[in-house]
Design a protein around this nucleic acid. Structure first.
Length: 137
DNA sequence: GCCAACGTTGGC
DNA sequence: GCCAACGTTGGC
């Protein structure tokens, strides 16, 4: 089991939209590092869902339901997508400022490389954010 | 709306 | 292959 965090601008695609749709293709990644992270995802992996630009908080957990395949929206280039389904909404959203204020979370991509849209998390980091979100899985 | 950080592009 | 210029992202 691996753990991840993805970012989405909520006015483009929010966690609530994922819940409403039941599942979603995670399309449009055009960054090699983010793509490689997508490709490392395994079915069943859990993915924290972060709202960028607006909200600026981790709002829920998604699950990888289909491992990577070619991005149908890519006209050229070697890009990949996965399919995600909603897993559980956090009881309490975890704001970026709280993450930045938490010593155990100083190494995650949100803090170290704010522009990366798909990033791995250590199990301990994932668990810490769940605790902050008052959520158990 | 600004701007810093980062990634990509393209001229040499 | 280097590096300057440019574009994009995303927090503030």
């Amino acid at each position: 089991m691996n753990y991840w965090l993805v970012k989405s601008e909520p006015y483009v695609f929010s966690y609530d939209q994922l819940v409403a749709d039941g599942r979603s293709i995670w399309e449009g990644v055009r960054n090699y590092q983010a793509r490689n992270n997508l490709r490392a995802m395994k079915e069943g992996d859990l993915v924290l869902f972060y709202h960028s630009n607006e909200g600026l908080e981790v709002v829920g957990i998604a699950q990888v339901i289909t491992e990577f395949y070619p991005d149908p929206t890519a006209e050229k280039g070697d890009w990949s997508v996965v399919d995600l389904a909603p897993y559980r909404k956090l009881a309490r959203a975890v704001p970026l400022k709280d993450i930045k204020a938490t010593p155990e979370l100083q190494n995650i991509g949100l803090v170290r490389n704010p522009r990366l849209s798909v990033m791995p998390l250590e199990a301990g980091e994932f668990q810490k954010i769940l605790e902050m979100g008052e959520t158990e899985i």
